[in-house]
């Protein structure tokens, strides 16, 4: 790993995932370069969500997984989920319902940004950039679907992940919002130079990534 551009690539080496008596993914190896988006497609039950869970560090019984995972030079498999610095966006926004919009974003903001004023300022800046200025004090339940999706993305990005996992995050948005939000997410991922893995059913999503597609069966 001496090549500077390669330093933060996400590398999967010989990854196999299975259920007792059934192989889902067999010795998959793939490099996801910073700022690039790799799409994983396949019918439900093909193991694409299991793959995402494994990268995120959430895969548990009854799944069995083998293989190595690197983020740059750092080996991730075996590292607990919270220490991986891998962000994830699900189909549902999963905003914490007991916190305000700003509360959700502050939850994602790393401790390294200290002091109440600095933290609030960082959150407001992020809301501003996402076209959600003044939404900080709102109850997430009062936001529209598109707004909630954007807050969820902001929350993930504020945590300063080094890689991004997208678990069909556009699946529940209607057609008009979908292309819009997709562009928004991909742009952020590229600008931040995040290696990104997308799981989707929709060929249009895959096309928009302009990246490679892994088809599982």
């Amino acid at each position: 790993m001496t090549n500077g551009a390669d330093v933060r690539a996400l590398r999967l080496v010989d990854v196999s995932i299975g259920l007792p008596g059934r192989v889902l993914i067999d010795a998959l190896s793939v490099d996801v370069e910073p700022g690039r988006i790799v799409t994983v497609m396949g019918p439900s039950g093909s193991g694409k969500s299991a793959l995402l869970s494994w990268i995120g560090g959430f895969l548990g019984a009854p799944f069995e997984a083998r293989g190595e995972l690197f983020l740059g030079a750092r080996r991730l498999d075996g590292v607990p989920a919270h220490a991986r610095r891998v962000g994830i966006l699900f189909q549902d926004d999963l905003l914490f319902p007991h916190l305000s919009v700003a509360g959700n974003l502050l939850f994602g903001l790393p401790r390294a940004i200290a002091g109440r004023r600095e933290r609030s300022a960082a959150v407001e800046r992020a809301l501003d950039e996402a076209g959600l200025a003044g939404f900080g004090a709102r109850d997430p339940a009062t936001l529209s679907g598109g707004q909630r999706a954007r807050v969820a993305l902001l929350r993930t990005l504020l945590a300063q992940p080094q890689a991004l996992l997208l678990d069909e995050p556009f699946g529940k948005l209607d057609a008009a919002l979908r292309a819009d939000f997709r562009r928004f997410v991909f742009e952020f991922a590229r600008r931040a130079g995040l290696p990104t893995v997308l799981v989707t059913h929709d060929a249009a999503d895959a096309e928009a990534t302009e990246g490679p597609v892994i088809a599982l069966s």
Binding site: G56, G57, F58, P80, A81, H82, A83, R85, V86, G87, I88, F90, D92, L94, F96, F107, G108, P110, R155, T156, A159, P161, L165
Partner: peptide
């Protein structure tokens, strides 16, 4: 996925 989201945000 709620606790998982929290973990993905770097929370112990």
């Amino acid at each position: 996925r709620y606790p998982r989201s929290a973990a993905a945000l770097g929370v112990t």
